[in-house]
Write a protein that binds this DNA or RNA. Structure first.
Lengths: 344, 344
DNA sequence: GTTAGCACTCAACGGCATAGAGTGCTAACA
DNA sequence: TGTTAGCACTCTATGCCGTTGAGTGCTAAC
């Protein structure tokens, strides 16, 4: 029975490394000259033939060298990659993206996305929401009068994310009214888990039956607001980077892929399959979407305290520089969490 | 002296229309058969030759038909386009994008961007900020304790946009302290124009000298926050749409263009040259950026009351369906403003 | 088990002829 | 004087070789 001994393994690694670098099928001669100088090309040839039979290599056609299969990348990722610390200069550059001491959450996410895509030359995605349904709690809730008949409802949650919503309210409500209502809402809702808010509001609606006309809009608005709040925010960066790579020189394919990056639902589908491990690498078909069948995606979660508060990821060709991507992802995720979570 | 009589004009229009449709150079025979059946191709040929001499047409090479020049599009836009109302079905589809009655501002902008790019098949940009420095005023300002040592500063402005910032504060400040500080900040700053805020803060810093240790961070944070607040938000949609068009089948060019769409500074440069008119069309080199030298951009402003509160635009090839784009832009802009500004 | 050698395969490339679209010009026509 | 038919000319796009070169697979020798 054919088996993957240590030498085959080394050769496979060499093929993957070379292919990641050059994007063109690698031949036996290349390996024998650049990577395994003690072996002749004929030997390599035999080994490659075995590797193909084992399913680790594909050949596009008879005389074109070999290409690593998804299975090969899987092996590569699982066995060859350790989390190597980021070279100092690279970390230095990344640090430059995050110079200021305080930020708007959204802006930090955008910075982080830009940092990720600049450092890796792939596309990056940041979702400011846990994949698992961690119980977020209401931290603060308030109504602000914008103009007669229009109020702004602010909701702040545990993870420091604020969402605002415009509400249409009864015209006769003034600043003082809103202030009182805000106080009452706060008393009832602060500390409440987001998913419990609708029930609490229902309850309040019952108590306040006599003022329903005035408050109906607000309670209804609050309910919708909380619903919207639960929809995570997604920030994308560096989509144009993908056009650098020959795998996307077919414009039609590139368009499909970039469309995915513009479709929140699909992006979330891509991000949400995280395994709960620190990093998840999904290769080709493992990504789950037909449009990304020849892409890989590396995701990581970031935490503040013990709570996972979001997911960050990098999308690129299967021929991805996994090691580097993981190192960058680690660094950026840590920095991001640190800025959001406090001083140290 | 060669002049642009009515017939030349009609022929030019036909050429532009056909080129917009097909993206390939149009020949005299096409015009004579599809648009000006009373004239022979030879006559058209003479006219086209004149039009070329006048600078309205270019010929890529001897036997390839003619292409409209930027000058031609300019004429076309200035003289041929009236604001035709959007066909009912299209308006219907667009309306579907905006079904809910209330929204987070950011989400509405995203919806609007998606609506724009879906309806036009070009890329869209929305800037939630006036191009002219309209005096935005502070509507509401408040500090919320997130965790010991970390506070969230909320700032709401006239146009209903909220920005949040995380501040690192002295650990001993509790909820009550922040509440008091919020009150004081509100008293001093609400109604203040954004650009006057730093000076006001400076003044407060002077008064509170004895508490500087505690408040220094907050005042400093507030100053930076207001600065950041003044940076407008930009939302982009449908960048991938551009890859549909043959003018961007050169991947390298496409990449450059899409990079522009990811670069906030450049986008703002593109949007900020609005003429103050309701719509501005900039064609090719008029866009000002080398990367968009063969693109056109149509921008419009949207208003709530008398204030211009933002700019919305569509970016596509110079061969753009200007008429349709303007109609869609008008409709979406109006809808957007209406949702942000209140009920009717 | 390793390697040299050789026949074989296949994409990529350049050259070349052809087809087709379109122009410009001239001469005839109304 | 404007319009048109006709024709020669230009230039790209397309398809068809033949050649080149990279690479494989197999066999036989080491």
């Amino acid at each position: 029975m054919l088996e993957l001994d240590e030498r085959k393994f080394r050769i496979l690694q060499a093929i993957i490394d070379d292919y990641i670098l050059t994007a063109s099928p690698v031949g036996s001669r290349t390996i024998s000259r650049k990577y395994e100088q003690s072996l002749s090309s004929a030997t390599i040839r035999n080994e490659m033939s075995d590797l193909e039979e084992l399913g680790y290599l594909d050949s596009p056609h008879t005389s074109a060298g070999r290409i690593p299969s998804a299975k090969a990348y899987r092996l590569y990722v699982d066995r060859l990659i350790r989390l190597a610390p980021l070279p100092f200069e690279e970390a230095e550059v990344l640090r430059g993206h995050f110079d200021q001491r305080m930020k708007q959450v959204h802006a930090v996410a955008q910075r982080a996305a830009k940092a990720l895509s600049d450092a890796t030359n792939y596309a990056s995605v940041i979702m400011t929401r846990p994949t698992q349904n961690i119980a977020l709690r209401v931290q603060h809730i308030q109504l602000v009068l914008v103009s007669p008949g229009v109020a702004l409802m602010l909701l702040v949650t545990d993870n420091g994310v604020v969402k605002e919503t415009l509400l249409h309210i009864a015209k006769e409500l003034d600043i003082e009214d809103l202030y009182r209502i805000s106080r009452i809402l706060s008393e009832r809702l602060v500390g409440c888990r987001l998913e419990d808010v609708p029930a609490a509001l229902e309850h309040m609606a019952g108590e306040w039956r006599e003022q329903r006309v005035l408050l109906g809009d607000i309670l209804q608005g609050a309910r919708e607001h909380v619903g919207a709040q639960q929809a995570p925010e997604v920030v994308v960066g560096g989509g144009a980077n993908l056009l650098r790579y020959p795998e996307y020189s077919d414009v039609e394919k590139a368009r499909e892929l970039l469309s995915v990056l513009e479709t929140k639902d699909k992006l979330m589908q891509l991000l949400e399959q995280g395994s709960g491990l620190e990093f998840t690498v999904r290769i080709g078909p493992e990504t789950g979407l037909p449009e990304t069948a020849d892409c890989s995606i590396v995701t990581g979660t970031y935490r503040v305290g013990n709570d996972t508060i979001g997911t960050i990821g990098v999308i690129g060709p299967t021929r991805m520089q996994y090691q580097k991507v993981i190192a960058v992802l680690d660094y950026v995720g840590r920095t991001f969490a640190q800025i959001l979570g406090g001083s140290e």
